[in-house]
């Protein structure tokens, strides 16, 4: 190897070290520092508490399976939170057609024959989707009210209170955060 190439390699090595300190050390530390200055709720994962105990994050859906709670979307990982991801199934795959048909039947059986909206039939990309569509939440409201012995109107009002429209009126989709909705539901039941 010529001496000029060796010089270049040594320069590359030093450049790598110096840029690592700047971009892999100082930069992430600075953003971390901003997080400590008043943004720690977001920086730490938007955790939600019940009675002072952390019971999840408002950004991460949970595996609600009982009739008493609103149920989130199907998940490839059942919301375990250890490894995220989707099913990668595609519409023409036989597994997927069977899964969709089974979920539609189960949804109708649990919710007085209601037709399942798309989000109730399909698994999300992350397996941690915290949101469902407002139609999905409304269709589950009668079942949830019955299972908790609550007035149906009160549960419908609760869903309405937790329905978020599109941001700025046009960004994203209307949605209901299932974790926050169920947290409020539990409080309503406890009263």
């Amino acid at each position: 190897m010529s001496s000029s190439n060796t010089r270049q390699l040594l320069a590359a090595l030093r450049m790598f070290v110096v840029l690592t300190v700047l971009l892999g050390g100082l930069y992430p530390a600075a953003i971390w520092g901003v997080g400590r200055l008043g943004l720690s709720h977001q920086a730490d994962g938007s955790r939600v508490e019940r009675g002072g105990v952390v019971v999840g994050s408002s950004l991460l859906g949970q595996n609600f399976t009982d009739d008493r709670h609103f149920q989130g979307r199907p998940s490839a990982s059942e919301y375990a939170g250890d490894v995220s991801g989707g099913t990668n199934l595609y519409a023409s795959a036989q597994d997927q057609q069977k899964a969709l048909a089974d979920r539609r039947a189960a949804y109708a059986a649990a919710n007085g024959g209601a037709a399942a909206p798309a989000d109730a039939l399909t698994a999300s990309a992350s397996g941690l989707d915290p949101d469902i569509s407002p139609e999905n939440a409304m269709a589950q409201a009668p079942r949830v009210a019955r299972a908790n012995g609550l007035d149906r109107g009160a549960v419908v009002d609760l869903v309405r209170d937790h329905t978020e429209g599109r941001t700025l009126g046009f960004l994203g989709e209307p949605r209901v955060n299932v974790v926050e909705l169920n947290l409020a539901l539990d409080q309503l039941v406890a009263r």
């Binding site: 971390w32 920086a43 999840g56 994050s57 991460l60 919301y79 939170g81």
Partner: peptide
């Protein structure tokens, strides 16, 4: 998120465990 916390296993609202990373 921007933190250096280890994965934390919490008793989820839904029952069962969930890992918050």
């Amino acid at each position: 998120v921007q933190n250096l916390s280890a994965p934390e296993t919490v008793k989820a609202l839904a029952g069962g465990d969930q890992v918050i990373r």
